[in-house]
Write a protein that binds this DNA or RNA. Structure first.
Length: 887
RNA sequence: GGGCGCAUAGCUCAGUUGGUCUAGAGCGUCUGGUUUACACCCAGUAGGUCGGGGGUUCGACUCCCUCUGCGCCCACCA
């Protein structure tokens, strides 16, 4: 017999080990079954599982378990990401904490990379065990890692292919340079922080110019204004003038450019092309000189004269002092609020610099897609516009298009050591791009590594290539793909489930790279979940540990099943959710309820001398079924349909709620209560089996554990059970009939509960007339219910002539055939219904007459409308007749 | 500046193409119950003019406009 309460702690690890050892997670690339694939978004190999991962794992596990039970070949590929900058950063920080001053300089490239590898290995094993804790049924035999050899081969192949197609180029551009981490980062990785800094206005010849960054102003020899600005009409483009500046007199040139906003400040500015992307563009347009003022460590160069070698943070004040002493400081505003660019990967303030970097050209039309030649941008737009890829929720498609419209060339090179090194080699002025190093002496590889998203953009397919084939350099990428059984079977994947915050970083780039490299879309559906927030709506973060909910603390306390459900039910895709312990406790209670319901069913079986294993689902004699049995079986068929339909359409929250209320409110509170008098073990076991099966994707541990107690003798594990199919022949009871049963049951019970009812007092239960014709057929059942409630039947008493009542000893319950009790209420109700029906009819008629509707609508819609009209007319007729009778 | 979203019971949220919702759930409140499936329980109760205003419609929580408040994303900030 089961314990009184479900204990996840003693169950979950055991169940997980059982699943894993059985091979239930492993997908077969040779099977005939329809494939269903999910690539797990690889957690960063830097650390700990958090709630963001937990929600992702819960959602994907539901998708994959449902697919598996639907007899699809379900594959869920797990893995980890090397998270280039983040990881290198963490390791460097650790080394510094251990007493090293400059780990990069002290260790050198090779040794530092070794350090990182060691760290990653430890972190990966932590993640693996944490993913297991959530019950994730992923295929560990296919675990992947973005830095493994096979993936490196794919990265190099794609790079070289793009290089050959002129989609990758190297050029001098303004990049987001982080002097702290000594690397550049992509535009998407830059965060903007609001700060208050002094804003200075200086006299620059005849002009006043404003700036927060005087330290960049050494090289400013161009003064720019809008060509239509009347205030400066006297100055002509190209005019020069002499003026006093930081380190003595300079010659300045007037530039007229439309990018200047006349309304901003004085409408005049000087430019620093080397350290600003906007200024760079202006300089480029007019062919102006560019000079570097600040070096890559953030120190001033010789152009700064006496300030040379000074760090910009120290130099600012001194430069201002000097300008002030020359009488050139016009104004200083200490309350100026502006935004400062910082590296979101844990680095410092971004200093724009011109650097030689590698870029992916998103506008060049060199990609063959659907028989046309398109740019990468166009392909990205096409696959979503055409519906090949569907995004849930749909509104993110807008966000996606908006992003693409503003997309600039993607800078893919990074000046860090941890990552895939750029597969380009140099010898003198020679340049060689190849999957393997060039032959011969004297070649040196480009020291840069690739943006971490370059490799993760290949994730859906690079994880499916055959590893032996990737070691064979006589094969092309195309041949490798064609000969990889996993790839041919499982790609494109079906669902990409991830947080909406990485739609640009990752989702968009997977689409970009995968369509280009494989000619296939990476996935069919994108399901985006929201962020998990604290109770007061704050982002959960390590810096605020009090509000943090750590899944690894929650799971032992409430169970993984409860955690999973608390993050799924009552949750809509793409919206953030607040999570707190009471919510999780609520689902822990639900899990326990299910457990105890099963315990009760098992007890009933024991009492009846039935062993659950012997019960064959659905094998009973029709005449042995009471009305309640029929009702529960009928409702169960609806449940199966609703859950199946909901899961197919990714309506996870609805389905969860439906299962929750069926289990608790209907199965436990109603059917099990009835069974206390007279139990039908066959039905109890059958219903429970179906229920547990339907619940399995949501709460896999407890259901698997229960299954072992209630399963048929010849059944295996629940994880591998087929999905239930509804049986229409069990669905014969009408909704009204069921409603009567429920109503009467509850009424009898509440009468019993109400102590104030004296024996013999007459109480009427009003049952609406539309049920009246059912009453006779249910009389026996109601009598049975009464017996269960310890009410004895005395049919000797006087029966009111106008009711078909069962007369009970303690209380008389009349069930009037007609609405005798509250005529007024019924008339009011019917009048309202009449009004409503008239409205429907009017609406339908208008619709059918409207050409706009009939011309545009498909035939089924019109037929449906006509049917609706017809049935409403019939309904109206009945209502009117009924009203006539009542009046 | 451009874009997206949210505003429904004390709290956290559902509400599927406008129609049996005279608006639902969980938690919390209050009342009562409980000799055995479960107090991680049972039966009830109270609580909302679905942010304000206008419009479309026979009918709007649901569609359109507008206002207010909150949040997010992108761009820019001389």
């Amino acid at each position: 017999m089961l314990d009184k309460a479900y204990d996840p702690g003693s169950t979950e690890d055991r169940i997980y080990a059982m699943w894993e050892e059985s091979g239930a997670f492993r997908a077969d690339n040779q099977s005939d079954k329809e494939p269903f694939t999910i690539s797990m978004p690889p957690p960063n190999a830097t650390g700990q599982l958090h709630l963001g991962h937990a929600v992702m794992l819960a959602l994907e596990d539901i998708f994959i378990r449902y697919a598996r039970m639907q007899s699809k070949e379900a594959l869920w590929v797990p893995g980890t990401d090397h998270a280039a900058i983040a990881t290198e950063n963490v390791v460097i920080k650790k080394l510094k904490d251990a007493g090293m001053n400059d780990p990069r300089a002290e260790l050198g490239r090779e040794k530092l990379v070794e350090e990182i590898k060691t760290f990653v290995a430890g972190s990966q094993s932590t993640i693996r065990s944490q993913v297991r804790k959530m019950g994730s049924s992923c295929d560990w035999s296919r675990e992947a890692y973005t830095m493994e050899d096979a993936l490196n081969r794919c990265v190099n192949e794609v790079f070289v292919k793009m290089f050959t197609d002129d989609l990758i180029y190297r050029g001098h551009r303004t990049v987001n340079w982080d002097p702290n981490l000594q690397t550049n980062v992509s535009d998407d990785e830059v965060d903007y922080e609001e700060r208050t800094d002094p804003f200075y206005v200086f006299q620059y010849g005849p002009f006043e110019i404003g700036t927060v960054r005087p330290e960049t102003k050494f090289g400013d020899k161009y003064v720019v204004m809008h060509p239509d600005d009347k205030r400066y009409a006297q100055y002509k483009h190209g005019d020069t003038f002499e003026c006093e500046w930081i380190n003595g007199p300079i010659t300045a040139t007037i530039i007229k450019d439309e990018s200047v906003d006349p309304a901003m400040g004085t409408g005049v500015m000087t430019i620093t092309p080397w350290h600003s992307a906007v200024d760079f563009d202006i300089a480029k347009r007019h062919g102006l000189d560019k000079e570097q003022i600040i070096d890559f460590d953030g120190k001033l160069l010789p152009i700064a004269g006496e300030f040379e070698g000074m760090h910009i943070s120290d130099a600012r004040e001194k430069i201002v002092e000097k300008l002030a002493s020359k009488g050139l400081l016009v104004k200083k505003d200490d309350t100026y609020l502006h935004t400062v660019a910082v590296n979101s990967r844990g680095g410092g303030v971004i200093e724009p610099q011109i650097k030689l970097q590698w870029f992916i050209d998103v506008n060049r039309e060199a990609v063959s897609w659907k028989g046309k030649t398109m740019s990468l941008k166009q392909v990205m737009q096409d696959v979503v516009k055409s519906g090949d890829i569907k995004i849930i929720p749909e509104r993110f498609e807008k966000t996606y298009f908006h992003w693409i419209d503003n997309l600039r060339d993607w800078c893919i090179s990074r000046q860090i050591w941890w990552g895939h090194q750029v597969p380009v080699w140099y010898k003198g002025s020679e340049e060689f791009a190849g999957v393997q190093p060039p032959e011969g002496e004297g070649w040196e590889q480009d020291p840069d590594t690739l943006d971490t998203w370059f490799s993760s953009a290949l994730w859906t397919w690079s994880t499916l290539v055959n590893k032996d084939l990737t070691a064979d350099y006589s094969l092309t990428l195309k041949e490798i793909l064609e000969q990889s059984p996993d790839f041919t079977k499982f790609h494109p994947t079906q669902v990409m489930e991830t947080g909406y915050d990485i739609i640009f970083f990752w989702v968009a780039r997977m689409i970009l790279m995968t369509t280009y490299a494989t000619g296939q879309i990476p996935f069919e559906t994108v399901y985006l979940h929201g962020l998990i927030r604290t109770r007061d709506g704050k982002k959960m973060s390590k810096s605020n540990p009090e509000t943090m909910i750590d899944p690894l603390e929650i799971i032992p306390k409430y169970g993984a099943d409860a955690l999973r459900m608390s993050m799924i039910v009552g949750q809509s895709p793409g919206n953030d959710q607040k999570l707190y312990e009471e919510k999780i406790a609520g689902y822990r209670n639900f899990i326990n309820k299910l457990w105890n319901a099963s315990r009760f069913v098992l007890m009933q079986c024991e009492t009846a001398g039935v062993t659950p294993a012997e019960v064959e689902s659905g094998a009973w004699k029709a005449e042995s079924l009471g009305l309640a049995d029929k009702a529960v079986l009928s409702s169960l068929q609806d449940l199966i349909d609703d859950v199946t339909d909901g899961l197919t359409n990714y309506r996870l929250s609805d389905v969860g709620e439906r299962l929750y209320s069926f289990t608790w409110d209907y199965f436990c509170d109603w059917y099990l209560e009835l069974s206390k008098g007279e139990a039908n073990p066959d039905v109890l076991i059958t219903v429970l089996r179906t229920l547990v099966t339907l619940l399995h994707p949501y709460c896999p541990f407890v259901t698997e554990e229960l299954w072992s107690q209630i399963k048929p003798a010849d059944a295996g594990m629940l994880i591998s059970e087929p999905w239930p199919v509804s049986d229409a022949s069990l669905n014969d009871a009408s909704a009204d009939q069921l409603q009567v049963v429920i109503t009467v049951t509850n009424a009898i019970r509440s009468l019993r509960a109400d102590q104030e009812i004296e024996a013999g007092k007459k109480v009427n239960i009003i049952i609406h007339s539309k049920h009246a014709d059912l009453l006779n057929t249910q009389k026996d059942h109601i009598v049975r219910l009464a017996r269960l409630e310890n009410l004895t039947i005395d049919s000797s008493g006087d029966k009111p002539a106008d009711s078909a009542s069962a007369i009970l000893k303690d209380t008389e319950i009349y069930m009037p055939l007609e609405g005798l009790i509250d005529k007024e209420a019924e008339v009011a109700k019917l009048s309202k219904e009449k009004e409503k029906l008239e409205g429907f009819i009017k609406g339908s008629e208008a619709k059918l007459k409207n050409k706009k509707f009939t011309d545009g609508a498909p035939e089924e819609v019109i037929t449906l409308e006509q049917e609706k009209l017809q049935s409403n007319k019939e309904k109206l007729k009945k209502v009117e007749e009924r009203l006539k009778v009542l009046r």
